[in-house]
Write a protein that binds this DNA or RNA. Structure first.
Length: 479
RNA sequence: GGCCUCGUCGUCUAGUGGUUAGGACGUCUGGUUCUCAUCCAGAAAAUCGCGGGUUCGACUCCCGCCGAGGUCACCA
């Protein structure tokens, strides 16, 4: 049977890293089995609805490369995919329940229900509405909430991650199916939708584990086959033991795009937070994840979110793309991350710069600070020369002489490429009887006045003869 | 409080009766003709939450406890 999974977020804001995994795993499973993934927007809470949130969600999925088969804009055989547009469907199913005597309209005012709840809380007993079930219930009509009539009993089921589950009758209750505003609750809507849409695997956070018996009761009352249930462990905040949420500063997934994290990194990192294939592999392409993913190997304990490892992984991916797909492919990912001054330079030049600094990048936004001297002349700061730990031992006139000799040798070069330049630099080392740390530091700093730069011959090569010599001369004059 | 879930290096994890408890991030130390990285090599780092059993033998099986989390909404 075809596997059908879904990602069913509510449009209450952006998707953060704490909950995007419940999009990734369904995606991987669907692709692995040549099944389908559905995007469904659970917008039945009209108070919390945020304008534009659906677009944000689609944007996130697109950026991560998680394409879906049915959903709001692209449509599909089970449209509409906004729950708010499916009211009649829920009502039709609700009427079946009423007809079967398994649902009732509840006239009890909220204040009264609150008092029941408070009573239970003060007695330290769980609040079960079915213990307060009204004797006579009216016809269901708009303005009245509709409740499920629970039949308490034991339930046994298998959670694909947590394993064999068993609960007693005490967890079943008369949950609200339809709110007084006519919209269904999540509890009811998702069951109806999953059934109508043919969803075979329901994947969601562990927080739903406690209410699963109520869902099981609903499947039963509705005469529906229960789908496979998959509980996903939480992603924990860096501090404490709570699940990662917006109040812990959980950034939106796409915010990481602005920070220069690659989507490959994000997908790789998040997929492997709480899942692994049992090997020692750390870097996975999307394709590899699709092939190797398995429900059985999802971790059943929470996993802490660790940004340091994300950064490491991003560095790995930057290098992987450069090595496997080439400098141009990596360059295409860097648009928007270059310093202002780079705008007036041709693409070839920027690709050349990228080629010699890419392996120092942790994020693409590092480009901004790491490459400025390739695009504008640095401010000359003689203290950087004089105070340098390798150059301290030289007097200013010695430095000037070293620099002048270097300038004349470089000026006389006929070719300007990394090999010729290295030969020239090596010759200067012999001639001046200095150590690489000394002479190279001098030239490197004079060229860049940056805390670090790529290998000297490469820096000179990319900067070009004219710019390099102009900068060295300027420094020689300034000493 | 009831019910449910979870518990291996700081972190992510491998491990299903017999292993020097393995890998990765991070940390530290070296090496790579200068810096910062990369890369390479190496080190430190888990009495497997605790206590009982079962067994020749337990991280692995059983029981109890403790700790952490979830849930008990007309939110999802």
């Amino acid at each position: 049977m075809e596997v059908v999974t879904r990602f069913a977020p509510s449009p209450t804001g952006y998707i953060h890293i704490g909950n995007v995994r419940s999009a990734i795993y369904p995606y991987l499973l669907a692709r692995q089995t040549n099944g389908k993934m559905i995007l469904r927007i659970e917008d039945t809470d009209r108070e919390r609805f945020v304008e534009g949130a659906t677009e944000l969600i689609e944007d996130t999925l697109n950026w991560l490369g998680l394409e879906w088969d049915e959903g709001p804009i692209i449509g599909g055989p089970h449209a509409p995919y906004f729950q708010s547009e499916r009211k009649e469907i829920y009502h039709a199913w609700a009427r079946k329940l009423i007809a079967a005597g398994r649902a009732y309209a509840d006239p009890t005012p909220p204040e009264v229900i609150d008092s029941y709840r408070r009573e239970c809380n003060s007695k330290k007993v769980p609040f079960l509405y079915r213990n307060f079930r009204p004797e006579n219930t009216p016809e269901w009509e708009p303005g009245l909430p509709l409740r499920f009539k629970a039949e308490p009993k034991n339930y046994d089921w298998v959670d694909e991650v947590m394993g064999k589950m068993h609960t007693g009758p005490e967890v079943l209750d008369d949950i609200i199916l339809i709110k007084k505003d006519g919209y269904p609750t999540y509890n009811f809507a998702h069951i109806v939708d999953d059934a109508e849409m043919g969803v075979t695997h329901v994947m969601r956070g562990v927080e739903y584990l406690s209410s699963t018996p109520n869902y099981l009761a609903l499947y039963e009352a509705l005469g529906l086959k229960r789908p496979k249930l998959v509980s996903l462990p939480h992603i924990l905040a860096p501090q404490g033991n709570k699940k990662l949420g917006k109040r812990d500063g959980a950034k939106s997934v796409t915010e990481y795009r602005a920070d220069g994290i690659l989507p490959e990194t994000m997908l790789n990192y998040l997929a492997c937070l709480g899942w692994n294939d049992g090997t020692e592999q750390e870097i996975y392409t999307k394709q590899e994840l699709i092939e190797k993913f398995s429900l059985q190997r999802i971790q059943n304990s929470g996993a802490r979110y660790d940004e340091t490892k994300l950064l490491w992984l991003n560095g790995q991916w930057i290098r992987k793309i450069f090595v496997e797909q080439g400098a141009k492919a990596l360059y295409d990912r860097t648009i928007g991350f270059w310093p202002e001054a780079a705008n007036s330079y041709p693409e070839d030049y920027k690709v050349a710069v990228l080629s010699i600094i890419y392996d120092r990048l942790k994020t693409l936004s590092d480009l901004h600070t790491m490459t400025s001297y390739f695009f504008e002349d640095p401010r000359i700061d003689l203290n950087m020369l004089v105070d340098n730990k390798f150059l301290k031992k030289f007097s200013e006139s010695e430095l000037e002489n070293l620099l002048k000799l270097s300038i004349s040798k470089l000026t006389n070069l006929e070719a300007w490429d990394k090999e010729t330049l290295q030969d020239c630099l090596n010759g200067l080392l012999v001639e001046t009887n200095t150590k690489p740390a000394e002479l190279f530091s001098l030239i490197r700093i004079a060229l860049s006045f940056a805390p670090f730069s790529p290998a000297l011959n490469l820096t000179l090569d990319v900067l070009g003869k004219e710019t390099s010599l102009a900068r060295l001369n300027a420094v020689a004059r300034a000493i």
